[in-house]
Design a protein around this nucleic acid. Sequence first.
DNA 1: CCAATAGTGTCTGTTAGACAATATACA
DNA 2: TGTATATTGTCTAACAGACACTATTGG
Lengths: 239, 239
Amino acid sequence: MSEKPPDFTKPYSTVDLVIFTVRDDALSVLLVQRANAPDEPYPLRWALPGGYIDVDRDFDLLDCAKRKLKEKTSLVSPYLEQLGSFGDRERDPRGWSITQVYFALVPSSEIRLQAGANAIDARWFEIGSGETKVRERLAFDHERILTAAIERLRSKVEYTSLPAYLLPEEFTLSELQHIFEIVLARRLDKSGFRTRVLDAGLITKVPRVRRATNRPAQLYRLKDRSAPLVFPRTLGAKN
Amino acid sequence: MSEKPPDFTKPYSTVDLVIFTVRDDALSVLLVQRANAPDEPYPLRWALPGGYIDVDRDFDLLDCAKRKLKEKTSLVSPYLEQLGSFGDRERDPRGWSITQVYFALVPSSEIRLQAGANAIDARWFEIGSGETKVRERLAFDHERILTAAIERLRSKVEYTSLPAYLLPEEFTLSELQHIFEIVLARRLDKSGFRTRVLDAGLITKVPRVRRATNRPAQLYRLKDRSAPLVFPRTLGAKN
DNA sequence: CCAATAGTGTCTGTTAGACAATATACA
DNA sequence: TGTATATTGTCTAACAGACACTATTGG
């Protein structure tokens, strides 16, 4: 039962990102296409954005995730949370590897996609409701990771106000409800939704309204955009 | 924006365990004392059990965690869940390192402690309610990890039946309630507790009773001991 | 029959969920 | 005035929480 010394074989360590947004009324995830190089595994396959930890530039894991997020989306401070890590002997043909997975929620406006170093293209893919979440076979074990991320997102939406991070800074209650409905894939009752969200005290009015061809709607914003998460009560109504 | 090649400097990768039990009516955590060797960081400090991933023996992260758990407690299949990973440049003086942390719930009976390779002693430490969770300064960033683990445990207890894994396979409802109260550090209403737990359908009667100097108590067991987790409704009563 | 704990029943304030009514803008 | 959406109100069934009562054993 001897410990391996620290300079024994180390696993590869990467950080990958599951970046969600809602566009065209559909939950979508950002994928990048891998380069077509002979020494790169899974050439031309679509994959979650990410890459190796740079021990010289990154101070910690979150730093590394933020850096990669910025490289892909040029966003600086969206919602970012650790999903978990996935590591085994077979997921990468180059050897024992571990990926630290973070998931991010970003507003679909405010985004300019950029292809990264190892990626020749970057695109949004809609999340389907079936067993296979995306109409592509992904590289590595990324399908499993994506599935886990979706599950986490859906379950957290039941008791937090996470979807607010999918909207621009200011939004109306109707817009917020709409985005909840998209993520949860079911209708919600208007009255119940409003009281739950407002009673929870997570959002505050801003002294402005959104005008259209009807009654103007009060604008709100998150009370504390940096706060990791929060919890109204249970949610539930099916309308 | 060039990617580092895979054989560039890798962080060290370890797996650490936060092993909880309840003994003498107190939530406790298993710590090991680090060896007093000149080249080892934090000599004689208490730390979470764990160690380097062995890329030859461990197939995946969970495997590695199970192996280490077995080495320390000789338990094979208790509740084991990934807590998260902690990685940065400073947490280990030997260099950039990442630890994959798992947390386990074990019944306090059924345990024979064993000191591991790098550990000269292993002991249970009671979790206090104050800011500092344990009356010891721990090695590395293990205090932060322990705090996160306790937080996770307490929050999950509010909506799952996790504490059942702290009991032997068969238990009475009173025993289950008692252990909930210890973990949550508050009293619960008997009637409400029973209906919640039973309605959730997580446990089943076994055709036996526990006898004492009073009315015998029905024995129960978890319906599916391998099921990752489960959720009654919200919990809450303060009695 | 007493002590001790197991197990069940009752009452009440709160709330989720469904639904309806009213409000306010532009055209 | 009409249309469209915002916002608020009402009613009801379900439920959590508090508390009390009954049940069953050993001594």
